[in-house]
Amino acid sequence: MIRVIKWNWQYYLMLLPCLIYYVIFKYGTMYGVIIAFKDYNVKKGILASPWADPLLKHFQYFFSSPYASVVIGNTLKISFLKIIFGMIPPVILAILISECGNKWFRKIVQTASYLPHFLSWVIIYGIMIAFFSQSTGLINRWLTEMGFSSYPFLTDPAHFQAMIVGTDVWKGVGWSAIIYLAAIAGIDTTLYEAGIIDGCSKLKRIWYITLPLLRGTFILQLILRTGSVMDAGFDQIYVIATSQVLSVSEILDTWVFKEGIQRMNYSLASAVGLLKSVISLILVFGTNKLARKWDEGLW
């Protein structure tokens, strides 16, 4: 081990800033998590604040909230819907783009499709209002002008989660496709040539060559996304949700923001944060273990 380091010490030296960064900014600040078990007092600071009595007081407070089950349910539902509906479209888009013969058209489509990734949710909310608002939105205008009645796209609890998932897919599809495009570009072209010689149609080539070779990337993406299952997208939902759809829009992060951060209840906020992290960690390990069954694990 030491010999290896000695031999390649230049590389290790280059790695050093990164390590120092993690030690200082990631692990060093981690001791602050103890306020989840304390009655954090701003004036006294982290160490001098008294321990919570009982120690798990803030966890108990969260679980005793009548909203706890709703909030956890919404978080998981929205997250899983985002994974289910958000994983496949980028693969399809990537294959479509890579199969497109016209280079000029391909570039335009690719750029246009990943552009929304750079828009903030506030801007997207503005766009959504312009299209979907019941009183002023474009789509409802068309509907009423064609003789139909207007529809509350943004304020109907029955379809709110669909709006959230839909806009999330719209925003992220182009960006996520990039990684698949890279993976497709890395596929050995001789495989395709062999396929052509053996008489494979274009669809068959996609099915028997492209898709199986994208499996690794796909599973990697899946593992990464399960890691963030407890984050259902705070900024998106905080911006878009109104009180009319509260029962389906309140997620862990928005609840913590309102109860914890805005009310200076930092102990509660970090207790729920800690809970989230632990669950996410378990999920990542779990998915990885599952993935290793197909020899595709991340580690």
Binding site: S133, Q134, S135, S150, P152, L154, T155, T242, S243, Q244
Partner: peptide
């Protein structure tokens, strides 16, 4: 007769 976006 009520503005449907009244809450928002």
């Amino acid at each position: 007769v009520v503005d449907p976006d009244i809450v928002a």
